[in-house]
C-alpha cells in the first residue's frame, strides 16, 4: 500500500514561487489500477518525480507500507528504487543494447545469476509479446515495440508498483490500444499495482478502475472511474469530459 501524505512541493525563482503540488494526499491500495489525470501544469510531472524518488517534497512524505520513502538513504534507497518499475513516455532504452540486454539491465544491477536472469528475461519477453525479438536493437523496433521493452524492463525486478508516465502519448491510437491491452493483461496476471499518469482521458476510461483528477497542484477528485465520470463534481473534471466529447 502506498500512502501519499500531505505532499507539498514548490519551485522558486527570484521573484515568484510556483506551488506544483499543494498538500496532496491519497492512498493507493495493492492491486489498484489508478489513473491520475490532469492538463499540463496540473503538477503531474512533479508528482512523478516524488513517486519515483528522484526529488524530495518540501513537506509531507510518501509511505510504502510502513516505510517512509524519504527517510531512506544510501543502499536502502537504491533497494527501494528497485522495487518501483517506471515506464516513460520516451521509452529511454539503451540504444546500443538489444531487447534482451535492455530487459536484463535492472537484473544486472543486482548481479542476478545468469541462468535465473535468462529465464526471467525470456518470461518477460513472452509476457509483453516480443517473442523472436530478443536480439533486435531499439532502432529496429516500432514505438509500440519499444514501449513493450520498457514495460518488460520495468517489471523485471518484480516491483510492487508499476508507474507509467504518459506511456502512450507518443503512440498512435491503434498502438495505444495494444499497449493498454497489455497493461490490463499484466494487471490481471500479476495483480501488480499500476498507476498511469496521463493527460488523456480516453486512456483512463479504457483501463483504469480508479481515477484521481489533478488541477493546479491539488487532487480535486478521487473515486472509481465510473462514478467520477458519471457524476463529475469539480469543474476541471467537467471540462476534461466536455473536451473529450467535443473531440469524439
Amino acid at each position: 500500500m502506498i500512502t501519499i501524505e500531505n505532499v507539498t512541493k514548490s519551485f522558486r525563482n527570484e521573484n515568484s514561487r510556483l506551488v506544483a503540488l499543494n498538500d496532496v494526499s491519497a492512498t493507493i491500495n495493492n492491486g489498484d489500477f489508478l489513473g491520475i489525470i490532469g492538463s499540463s501544469g496540473a503538477g503531474k510531472s512533479t508528482l512523478i518525480r516524488q513517486l519515483s524518488l528522484i526529488e524530495r517534497p518540501d513537506k509531507g512524505t510518501i509511505w510504502l507500507d510502513d516505510v517512509d520513502l524519504f527517510k531512506l538513504k544510501g543502499r536502502d534507497l537504491l533497494r527501494m528504487r528497485r522495487q518501483l518499475g517506471i515506464v516513460f513516455q520516451g521509452y529511454h532504452l539503451l540504444e546500443q543494447k538489444n531487447v534482451f540486454e535492455n530487459i536484463a539491465f535492472p537484473l544486472q544491477l543486482v548481479n542476478m545469476d545468469k541462468t535465473a536472469m535468462r529465464s526471467r528475461v525470456e518470461e518477460l519477453i513472452s509476457l509483453v509479446g516480443l517473442n523472436g525479438k530478443a536480439q533486435a536493437y531499439p532502432v529496429q523496433l516500432s514505438g509500440g515495440q519499444k514501449q513493450r521493452v520498457a514495460i518488460a524492463r520495468a517489471l523485471a525486478s518484480s516491483p510492487s508498483l508499476l508507474l507509467c508516465d504518459e506511456p502512450t502519448s507518443a503512440l498512435d491510437v491503434i498502438t495505444t490500444k495494444s499497449i493498454l491491452d497489455l497493461l490490463v493483461e499484466i494487471h490481471r496476471k500479476t495483480n501488480v499495482t499500476i498507476v498511469i499518469i496521463t493527460h488523456e482521458l480516453s486512456v483512463v476510461k479504457a483501463v483504469c478502475k480508479r481515477v484521481i483528477v489533478m488541477n493546479e497542484g491539488s487532487f480535486v477528485e478521487d473515486g472509481s472511474v465510473r462514478e467520477v465520470f458519471a457524476s463529475p463534481k469539480h469543474d476541471m473534471t467537467k471540462l476534461l469530459l466536455s473536451y473529450q466529447e467535443g473531440l469524439l
Partner: peptide, 30 residues
Amino acid sequence: VDEGLIKAAITMGATPWQIVAKVYLVESVP
C-alpha cells in the same frame, strides 16, 4: 547520452558507478 536514460537508470536503483560503466560508456561507444 540521452538524459532521460540516465534518469531512468537512477530510478532503477543504479549506483553512480553502474551508470558510468553500464550506461554512459556503453551508449557512447561509437
